[in-house]
Measured scan of single mutants.
Amino acid sequence: LVRYRTISKIPQITLNFVDLKGDPFLASPTSDREIIAPKIKERTHNVTEKVTQVLSLGADVLPEYKLQAPRIHRWTILHYSPFKAVWDWLILLLVIYTAVFTPYSAAFLLKETEEGPPATECGYACQPLAVVDLIVDIMFIVDILINFRTTYVNANEEVVSHPGRIAVHYFKGWFLIDMVAAIPFDLLIFGSGSEELIGLLKTARLLRLVRVARKLDRYSEYGAAVLFLLMCTFALIAHWLACIWYAIGNMEQPHMDSRIGWLHNLGDQIGKPYNSSGLGGPSIKDKYVTALYFTFSSLTSVGFGNVSPNTNSEKIFSICVMLIGSLMYASIFGNVSAIIQRLYSGTARYHTQMLRVREFIRFHQIPNPLRQRLEEYFQHAWSYTNGIDMNAVLKGFPECLQADICLHLNRSLLQHCKPFRGATKGCLRALAMKFKTTHAPPGDTLVHAGDLLTALYFISRGSIEILRGDVVVAILGKNDIFGEPLNLYARPGKSNGDVRALTYCDLHKIHR
């Protein structure tokens, strides 16, 4: 019993810090008490220290592992850092350059016999395009090294910054494609005289377009951006097909006994025919423009016929181009109408809503002055909100995010209106959640004399007048207030005048 009563005193000691020596009952000389009392004092002292730490809000209350900052290894790049964003855009520009100039170089340097010394005699450094290609190869190699040090988000939505895990993730992902696209074939085969082989191998750079397509997928929600990307894709495919079309004609031209190829026909049409040795002929500019003209006309199913396939190889390629053109029509131009419709969806919704308003007016036989006010209010409210119901949009977000959005939407009023000066951010967040926005066209009466005042109004834009009878008592403008002081009276009061809008007004109100 003594032991039980001794232990039962522990909660009292913990909360009230009572010393055991003052209790005459606990001072009985028993061996059990002498053993338990020192333990009680020690526990009391420890609990006292913990309570003191909690009340003082000291940093040592938290466990040590929670006080440590997340460790980022040296030379690790955050995937959302500004440097990584700028670097990704730079790589994107280099990939676009590669997609345009690599097929052009591979096709127009394929057994090209233009006048001038061969590239091997001039030297590697004197070729501007080769120098640019070398810079692109170096940048792609540097990009691989950067990807080995860039964080990523795993399946659990955690940012991984450990170098080993980053390397394994990159090896399992895009490393092989990036490595093949970054191989400097110019340096590996330079001086061997195989410019045709170098041009063909350099087309491996186009593998990076797969990554670019995935990154550009984030802009699919913007109709104008999608339309622009589709047109660029169409032009890029036409450019690639033009390079292939020229390569076919250029390879067949020296081996044909009869002059029936499209390059021969082009030379005869523009007065620059090929001679018996295969030299001469149109310039590279004429060849490229004509090839691009043929691919565009074939892809769009126009086909004027002034550039036509004559050999079997050219006919087979033309059939493939027609098939590609039909697929592009289905996948690209078939979506253009939907994209344009999405661009004008706001206008369509406006006309639909206006039609419903006019049908309501016609069905209920609203008189002319009231009908005009109804239409003007709808037009003004639509121009202010673009038909978007803010309350319906915010309803799907958590309250903390709703408060931040409301604070942002009402920031101008909260910053410049005098009653809100000096208020804490928590108070402003709470008030912003209570605001209701209303609009009024010129001549609209917001409050009639004798109406119950259940709200306090803040003028965000425009001006109003307060009338008693036919006498203008006051004219209020931006950041002015009218209405009933909230919670100042037990019952809502009545208006002693009319409140009429002089201009288009936007008002925020808080109800009782």
Rank of each mutant, 00 (worst) to 15 (best):
K66A: 07
Q68H: 13
A69H: 06
W75C: 04
L78I: 06
Y80Q: 10
Y80T: 07
Y80C: 11
S81W: 07
P82F: 05
F83R: 14
W89N: 01
L90A: 09
L90I: 07
I91Y: 01
I96M: 03
I96K: 01
Y97Q: 01
V100E: 01
F101A: 11
P103T: 04
A107V: 04
L109W: 03
K111E: 11
E112T: 09
G116W: 04
A119H: 13
L129T: 06
L129N: 05
L134P: 01
V136S: 04
D137N: 04
I138K: 01
D143R: 01
I144P: 01
T150W: 01
A155D: 10
N156W: 05
V159I: 10
A167N: 01
Y170R: 01
K172N: 03
L176A: 11
I177T: 04
V180F: 08
V180M: 13
A181E: 01
P184M: 01
F185P: 01
D186T: 13
G193P: 12
G193I: 10
S194L: 14
E196R: 14
E196W: 04
E196H: 15
A204V: 07
R205D: 01
L207M: 13
R208N: 08
L209Q: 01
L209C: 05
V210G: 11
D217R: 10
R218K: 11
A224Q: 09
A225I: 09
L227G: 01
L230Q: 14
M231D: 01
I237K: 01
W240T: 01
L241G: 01
A242Y: 01
A247G: 01
A247W: 11
I248Y: 01
G249C: 01
G249A: 03
N250T: 11
N250R: 14
E252V: 01
Q253D: 15
D257N: 07
S258E: 11
G261W: 01
W262E: 01
W262C: 01
W262A: 01
Q269T: 03
K272F: 01
P273E: 01
P273S: 03
S276H: 09
L279Q: 15
G281M: 01
S283P: 01
K287D: 01
K287I: 04
K287Y: 03
Y288V: 01
V289L: 01
T290K: 01
T300Q: 01
G305K: 01
N306F: 01
T311W: 01
N312Q: 01
Y329S: 08
F333T: 03
N335C: 03
V336D: 01
I339T: 03
L343H: 05
L343K: 06
H351W: 15
Q353W: 04
R356S: 15
V357S: 03
R358T: 05
R362E: 04
F363L: 11
F363C: 09
N368E: 08
R371M: 03
L374E: 01
Y377G: 10
W382H: 04
S383I: 09
N386V: 05
N386I: 04
N391E: 08
P398Q: 01
P398T: 03
L401N: 01
N410T: 07
S412K: 07
K418H: 09
P419M: 04
R421I: 06
G422M: 11
T424K: 09
G426M: 03
R429I: 04
R429A: 05
A430W: 08
L431I: 09
A432N: 01
A432V: 08
K436P: 02
H439V: 13
V447A: 02
A449V: 13
